[in-house]
């Protein structure tokens, strides 16, 4: 992480927002943001320090649990993840950075949690893990952590285009009694919303350890929280709406390093 930040500074790719400078990478042509800044940069030094230290970062409790589950047999087929995918450090390197991705057989995209459950139900003949259950959080955190430092690379070409468009529509549509879109806050990054310093709202650190809940938060769990905060009726986790939003949001942060397990407030 530090390397990336220092790299950003080294390249002179910083943007002054009032008195504060944030390390950033340039946004591609046609991107709605002038530069891409990880949520890490908006956090207090104490919070950043927690993320920077692989021991002190409590998210690694989930990474370790995920690694154990990877090697644990489950289901009628008597298989573990390792039975098919062997050593996750090799087979899963970079994989988490590319999700959600198109699934030909299904004719729709799948995200990482959905793919984990496809393996459980299909290959392992086990029960799907419930959304936000500890094992699903642990496994998705573990797999994403194996792409740490890799640039987010969500492919939105071809059949993904329609999902990208749908996600963009949701991102800019105002929701709830407070009548706010995702963009209302996250394109006003660097400003305060009451006591909160607004970030660009990227997904590169998810699942992320939150100081508030003192636990891991999935991306769709965070979406739900944002929708609650604007007093809207949230879409269901793992619904097509949140999947489309995840795809669009992933694209917005393409190029930022995966930071899972990040630490946020």
């Amino acid at each position: 992480m530090r390397r990336w930040i220092l790299g950003g500074i080294g390249m002179g790719l910083t943007l002054g927002l009032g008195a504060t400078e944030y390390p950033s990478i340039p946004a591609p042509e046609g991107h709605p943001l002038p530069e891409l800044i990880s949520g890490y940069a908006f956090r207090a030094p104490e919070t950043q320090a927690l993320q920077d230290d692989d021991f002190e970062n409590p998210g690694f409790l989930w990474v370790e649990q995920g690694a154990e589950l990877w090697a644990t047999q489950d289901g009628k087929a008597g298989k573990s993840c390792a039975s098919c995918h062997q050593d996750a450090a090799q087979s899963m390197a970079g994989v988490g950075a590319r999700y959600p991705r198109w699934h030909d057989k299904l004719g729709k995209p799948v995200n990482l949690e959905q793919q984990i459950n496809r393996c459980r139900v299909g290959a392992q003949q086990a029960e799907a893990w419930a959304f936000d259950s500890q094992p699903l959080l642990a496994m998705s955190t573990y797999i994403r952590s194996l792409s740490r430092g890799e640039p987010v690379a969500v492919d939105v070409a071809g059949p993904m285009q329609a999902w990208f468009e749908k996600g963009r529509e949701i991102y800019y549509r105002r929701h709830g009694q407070l009548d706010l879109a995702c963009a209302s806050c996250h394109e006003n990054y660097g400003k305060q919303l009451r006591s909160d310093l607004l970030s660009q709202g990227h997904s590169n650190g998810f699942p992320t350890y939150r100081l508030k809940t003192q636990g891991m938060v999935s991306l769709h769990g965070r979406f739900k929280g944002c929708m609650r905060d604007v007093r809207a009726e949230a879409y269901a986790p793992l619904s097509d709406e949140f999947l489309a939003l995840e795809i669009y949001l992933g694209w917005r942060g393409n190029g930022l390093p995966v930071e899972t397990p990040a630490v946020r407030h």
Binding site: R194, S195, D196, K212, C226, H265
Partner: peptide, 8 residues
């Protein structure tokens, strides 16, 4: 202790 906003 900061309270308010989405983090509070």
């Amino acid at each position: 202790v900061t309270i308010g906003g989405c983090g509070g």
